[in-house]
Nucleic acid binder design. Structure first.
Lengths: 337, 337
DNA sequence: CTGAAAGCGCTTACAG
DNA sequence: CTGAAAGCGCTTACAG
């Protein structure tokens, strides 16, 4: 009897348990996966098998089990980063909620790299995921197409696509509210409305553009001039935001709309190197409990992660071909003292 | 020919590709998994099969493939949280480094719940993980035993266990250095050494106790009295830290050793509600770029995540039965202006 | 050089 | 009521 070599050779199978328990492999299988009630196997046998399984440290081979079963119950998620409050919270709550629904969540982190995103999606298809949640992807439609070919449903989270339902923050409304707050606070601080900058994110990124649109709407509404040269969208990284600040000519009385805490890291690092600018006020589209304590910070916009995930699972439960329309959730504006 | 029902019915198999390409399933398999070079299959056939696979959106069934193969190359990790810089960075870098080594990382988040930790470990065993990295677990030894029964190696990260190699920060040394810095800065600020508090973490937690030991060593060394009633270890959460602060009687000239950014959230929230205490100085054992900007913060201790993971993979590559000794990496003390 | 066949560990419809 | 047998999709040693 040849057994698989390597590490797995020690793992007991249902055949091992059956031999030890003096039962058939079929019986062992049904006892261990709970379908034995239907089969009227004697409680004594069931107990014995369960005890032996425990003694042997048996763990079902999920690969074999999934291969045989009709459904995998695996739900995949790709997410750009873990190490930031927003995506960290998304990943964590997604796992918890998926488990609570009896699904097996598998998450992978794709570093905002379109190729990695695509490879990760393909990988999750290989694992027989039944649904794939595509979070903050640069090219969600390409992934939706790949998955559609295998009959796997995708749902876009955070960034929208055109080939699957999308669940987003109301970036326009949130940015408009935040801009209003920044204008109000800066005007109070300086006695007059100062020039207003927009820093962070990138051109062609849907959320950044929506936020810029909200920013602009709030400017227009209050009669503030909108100046394209005061819009700095160098991409997502503290370093890039820092470099963009270097290039800008920020006066001592200014206000900044910071697009994401990632950009904020660069902005505050730069501000700290320019103490003459300590009067500058900013607000940030994103939430971070420590950033909320910075004295120049007038307010932060928190995205409703729990609400977005609740909506996500609502769409999943609804099943079928949901529309590809975007569902937008309001953001929570947190003014700071 | 009955095919599996449900979602998977659309997924093409090597048999489908073989039929379309006019080749044998064996040939298709070896072409797609790269072993065809050995088999001297004609380049023309290979090309054709690869093209057809792409057209059909073929993705190998990892379950079937793993079931048949000798090794899974899966490396599992359990981690308490994602939504915090330290564990977020661990998860993210772990994924990247594992992939670079040709392994398949699977991470699951266990919320510091011992039962969830155990269930997650069992789950990863079921997925045929060959190695399990047990990060910050409350009971790593129980997991090591479970895995040992299946011949699966475990390695403890961040919190030590006695049944597997452990990779840790030098919590004692890091805490001692941080305490020295806090004492020095507070003495400069107040003209004399103020009473020193220790806030955060929990009793019986190895890292917390090591840090407390380092804290105490630095107190002793500098002739500061160590007062047990100034040690508050209410567990890991901002709320608990906040409540502990409520109960303490902190004077206007005081200094605090804050054990983790999680506790720091509660501490600063409390300090902000007590403006009379704005002279209080603190340092924090953990790193966060925004917390680093808080004016009362004299320094932060960054754990060397990259170094720990490099060490982790060194131990894994070394294979065999490495000792169960703990490997301790120095922390990086970041004094703040 | 290449394909048919065995078998990975499980699940479940089916025969007895 | 219960066990033997088929088969999930793949990989690879083996026969030709």
């Amino acid at each position: 009897m040849t057994r698989k070599g390597g590490v797995s050779s020690k793992r007991p199978t249902i055949y091992d348990l059956a031999r030890i328990a003096g039962a058939s492999p079929s019986a062992v299988s049904s006892i261990l996966n709970g379908s034995w009630e239907k089969r009227r196997i004697s409680a004594a046998t069931a107990k014995r098998v369960i005890r032996i399984a425990q003694e042997q440290g048996y763990a079902v081979n999920r690969q074999a089990s999934l291969l045989r079963r009709d459904r995998s119950h695996i739900i995949g998620m790709i997410v750009p980063k873990y190490d930031n409050r927003y995506f960290g919270a998304i990943a964590e709550q997604f796992e918890t909620m998926a488990r609570a629904k009896g699904l097996f969540p598998v998450i992978t982190c794709t570093q905002r790299d379109p190729e990695l995103e695509f490879e990760a999606a393909r990988e999750l298809l290989s694992y027989q995921a039944e649904t794939l949640v595509v979070t903050g992807a640069t090219d969600p439609d390409r992934i939706s197409e790949l998955c559609a070919a295998s009959g796997v449903r995708t749902i876009n989270l955070d960034l929208p696509g055109s080939k699957a339902p999308s669940i987003l923050s109301d970036n326009f409304g949130g940015a408009k509210d935040l801009t209003r707050l920044i204008l109000k606070r800066a005007t109070e601080a300086f006695g007059a409305a100062p020039p207003l900058w927009f820093v962070g994110g990138r051109q062609h990124d849907h959320n950044s553009m929506e936020r810029l649109r909200g920013f602009r709407a709030a400017c227009d509404e209050s009669g503030q001039p909108f100046a394209p040269q005061r819009v700095l969208m160098p991409g997502y990284s503290p370093q890039k935001a820092f470099a963009a600040m270097e290039g800008a000519e920020i006066p001592q009385q200014a206000a900044i709309f910071v697009n994401s805490t990632i950009a904020l890291e660069g902005v505050v690092r730069w501000l700290n190197q320019h103490p003459s600018l300590k009067a500058v006020r900013f607000g940030c589209f994103d939430w971070d409990p420590f950033a909320a304590l910075l004295p120049q910070n007038v307010g932060m916009t928190e995205q409703d992660v729990t609400g977005m995930l609740a909506e996500l699972f609502r769409v999943i439960d609804a099943g079928g071909q949901s529309s590809t329309a975007a569902i937008k959730l309001p953001c929570i504006l947190r003014p700071l003292p």
